[in-house]
Amino acid sequence: MRVRVLVLRTAGTNCDLETAYAFGKAGAEAELVHINELVRKEKDLAEYQVLVIPGGFTYGDDISAGRILANELRYKLSDRLLRFVEEGKLIIGICNGFQVLIKAGFLPALKGLGKAQEVTLGWNDSGRFEDRWVYLKVEPGSRCVFTDGLEELLYMPVAHAEGKFIAPREAIKSIEGNAQVVLRYVNPSGELSGYPWNPNGSLGNIAGICDPTGRIFGLMPHPERHVDGFQHPRWTREGLREEGDGMGIFRNAVRYVKENL
């Protein structure tokens, strides 16, 4: 079957092409669609099975990262998004896309989808943008379909200024309790650790979470930047690998769609 992926673009999106490339490599048909095309109904969200909100600086991160696109989704596309999720389809937000999903209330969605912002991604403790490679531990027992069956330790870069996961006490209890934590920053031995292994000071070292269904996934690190062996920072000393750790996430999405939709 055809797996159709909509890669959402708007002013300031900048990881759209490599994200589409990664999905293509995983066997999907990925299409770049400008948000205006959805708002004006020139493109129909219902024709796709996966929605990606890729990385970038939508609307310049003005006010705060992801805020303005989150606002636009809520006011312009909310009904269609809810229907998309109800139909059992998948949404992934990477970096800026994660910020958007959180600020639009699509993650963690403890009290329902798109209702209110429940947690946030604040400024890195270092106070600045940082690009560095991080080790991620896939949370055992997580209900996320994107990370199902992946190796325990993944390696990929983060590149952001506002990625510190912050949650009120009640919210974090529910997120942990519902198995909605998907990825945590760890050191090379797989243990929870401080800066720079936890690059931004995230609560509980949280790097990615999902909604209660496991079908909406957001993460700060960039899996689409580690799909080829050449992208690994140490391939010249450790050898060229067939593919990067990020591929599993895209392949899982494609497999899920094929098996379930």
Partner: peptide, 14 residues
């Protein structure tokens, strides 16, 4: 260097 995104577009080899 770390404050610059040096791998967006996914093409970095070195």
């Amino acid at each position: 260097i770390r404050q610059y995104d040096h791998e967006v577009q996914g093409g970095s080899v070195l």
